[in-house]
Amino acid sequence: MMIRYILQRIMIAIPTLLVISFVVFFLIQLPPGSFLDAKIAAMELEGGVDMAEIETLKNTYHFDRPMIVQYYYWITGFVTGDMGKSFETDVEVTRTLAELVPVTAAISLFTILFTWSLAIPFGIIAAVKRNSPLDYSLTFIGLTAMATPAFIIALIFQVVMQSLWPQFDPTGLISREYVNVPWSMAKFADLLKHLWVPVFILGVGGTAGMIRILRANVIDELKKQYVLCARARGMHPVKVILKYPVRVAINPLVSGIGSILPSIISGSMIISIVLGLPTLGPRVLQALMNQDTYLAASCVFIQCVLAVVGILLSDLLLAVVDPRIKFGGK
């Protein structure tokens, strides 16, 4: 039954992705002009238009053909693993991805770990000790952190760090001596040394939000009769809370895994720009602004695929952790 359900969901996902891929491509092509027009304009400014180069570009990327044909060339290439080249840098899209995705994913995964490892215990404590001074201070810190945009936190952080610890460079991820050096243990260690800054800045808002959600969920569950019944069986109150209400309250977090997946490779655009992080976010922004169709469409589409896969994954996970969903019970 479970396998049939999974197959069914995959069958639905395929046409969904096709429609999404078209919409993505269409939207990126939508602004007037194309990369080619911009290129010709730039060449004119520099003095001479190299018609041969323009012709080559035209032939390689089918700029003179209708949009639907261009879409066809892009999507067939994408499916076979050939995502084309960036118009701007003439570098393979796959190479750009291979370069930027690992760092982006590392930041995102550490951010998720940071968020969960703080939010889960604090959410539970805030719920159990609700309306206590501890709960109120967590609420105060949490609401402040949620209300402050992350880029403001990033800027404040930079200013504060500059005055407290001038030697420390809070921007970037890799020290100067390691740029353009192949990956090694030393370089990885250097990455870890820098990683906590973006992880902290990116994670603060999410952590605060998740504490609120978890607190509300646990409080809802604490009122339920089955918690009292478990206590009446003579179970230790702390064990009761961890075994029953927390177990039920954690379900919404599991369903959140789906929405996390696409953001793992996108990273946060604004924070990456403020902190000068070499992640995919700023690169995609640049590609979108330059109408660098292949790079932009491929990156955005990969995120869409991850979103669809993520939602499928979280639905399945939720069915595993919550029997009420698997059996369609009440």
């Binding site: 339920k224 089955y226 019944c229 478990a230 177990r247 919550d322 029997p323 009420r324």
Partner: peptide, 10 residues
């Protein structure tokens, strides 16, 4: 209220 006396996920 026996309806809610048992944990829904155990």
């Amino acid at each position: 209220e026996p309806m809610t006396a048992l944990s829904p996920v155990h």
